Simulated scan of single mutants.
Amino acid sequence: MSRLNGTRAAFDTNDEKVNVAILGAGRIAHTMADTLVKMAADPRYADLIHPYAVAARDLGRARAFADQWGFDQAYGSYEDLVADPAVDLVYIATPHSLHAEQAILCMKAGKNVLVEKSFTANADQARETLDVARETGMLCAEAIWTRYMPSRRIINEILGSGEIGEVKSVSANLCYPVSDKARMTDPNTAGGALLDVGVYPLNFIDMAVGADHGRAIDHMDTSMVAHESGVDAQNSTTLVYDDGVMAVSASSMVVASDRGGYVWGTEGYLVVHNINNPEGIDVYGADHRLARHVDVPEQLTGYEYEVADAANALIDGKTECEAMPHKDTVRIMELMDSIRMRWGLRFPFED
């Protein structure tokens, strides 16, 4: 039974859960399905969400997905999914190039959306999508999980405590050898390392020393090595903030890296193990001795935080999530546009 009436109505919390649907049935959709099933069985989330439906471009594939994860409904088209009045929140799990049109389809049909990163292929698409969110009153949020994880608060608390002194520099990298995946090298799907993995070190930097701390980028330098298809195979970007803090972001789809995040201060430094899904945080003094190790909370899959945040925002009648508000999504998309512009990289659909 739907809790939404018309384009936007207050959510009825009379013991009813948020029915979550997944648009797409690829690898990341399965990760989300696993998350939703675990949330539904966890006392912390069981009264909040219900794994409800999936849609794929092939009904047989959708039914197999629904059967595997115990979803109530399966649809062979995205239009059929958004026509279901019982769907409250749609997680969009398709390539970047499709996010804008699919999020707009959902919102115009009265569905709230949680859109996998990168939010869209470029900032123009992001602004168009968020314009529709404002017009329809639907919740629209970017599903970049590290923005919602408890590790974000932990890192900011350490840095805010002054334990490593005054922060002066930061470095973050994320590299996976994934160039064998067709969507990663295809310009038509907004492929390349930047939008798929590079978005994480840029967001880590933004959270560790950037907008989370009131800084704005003054200037930057960037370079990339192109894949034979024309998209970036690997890249590096140096950002200089208005107070002189420097940050280096590196990403690649052809090599593996330590996935580390490093924040350097005048009295020590901080090391985050795996910025894509923080496993722990080490704090060192200026003498390079380990001062302490901080564990991150045990999690279901890591995706539960973004789902819970979106579901609670929906219930509260909000149109954005506090952990990743619209202005942050647009700022990161604009930054990645600027980086690609420096490279001379445009996707075919942008011409």
Rank of each mutant, 00 (worst) to 15 (best):
Y91W: 04
D287R: 14
V330C: 10
P43Q: 07
D88T: 12
L290R: 02
R127G: 14
A286D: 08
V113K: 05
R57A: 02
H99P: 12
N312T: 10
L239M: 07
S97E: 03
D67T: 03
D287W: 05
N14M: 12
F119G: 06
K327H: 03
Q68M: 07
K327P: 04
H293P: 00
K17Q: 08
S229D: 11
L105G: 08
M149A: 12
R183M: 15
R289V: 01
V294E: 00
T189Q: 13
P51D: 08
K318M: 09
Y91F: 08
A310P: 04
D351P: 10
M184D: 15
D351R: 15
L59H: 11
A211E: 06
G191K: 05
A109H: 13
E322C: 15
H227L: 09
A190F: 04
V245S: 05
V18F: 03
N312K: 15
A103S: 13
Y262C: 00
P297F: 15
D67C: 03
T13L: 14
G137D: 06
M149H: 13
D42T: 09
H99A: 08
V197W: 06
N203Q: 02
M341C: 11
R289H: 05
L202Y: 05
Y284H: 02
D72A: 15
R152S: 14
T120A: 07
P95R: 03
A66M: 10
Q102I: 11
F347H: 13
G198F: 00
V115A: 12
N188S: 10
I339V: 09
S151Y: 12
A41G: 03
V283N: 00
A53E: 01
V248A: 08
G244I: 07
P177K: 09
T319N: 09
I28L: 14
I22W: 03
D351Y: 12
A100T: 10
D351C: 14
L81M: 06
V307Q: 10
V254E: 06
M336R: 08
E304V: 13
S77C: 04
E322G: 15
A74G: 10
C140W: 09
S179T: 01
E128Q: 03
T31E: 06
T31R: 14
T94G: 09
D212Y: 11
M336Q: 07
S338L: 12
D221T: 10
T266N: 12
Y262E: 04
I164A: 03
L195P: 02
H227Y: 06
H50R: 06
A233T: 02
D221A: 13
Y241S: 07
E306H: 15
Y284R: 01
A141F: 02
A233L: 07
G285Y: 05
D206F: 13
P297V: 02
Y200F: 06
V240D: 07
A62W: 01
R8N: 15
Y241I: 09
E334A: 14
L270C: 01
E157I: 01
A190T: 07
Y284G: 01
D58Y: 03
T185N: 10
V209T: 02
I164Y: 02
G261Q: 00
Q234E: 14
W145I: 04
N5M: 14
A256D: 04
E79T: 05
S257G: 11
V199E: 00
E166A: 06
V255T: 08
T94K: 08
A86V: 14
R63E: 11
G344P: 08
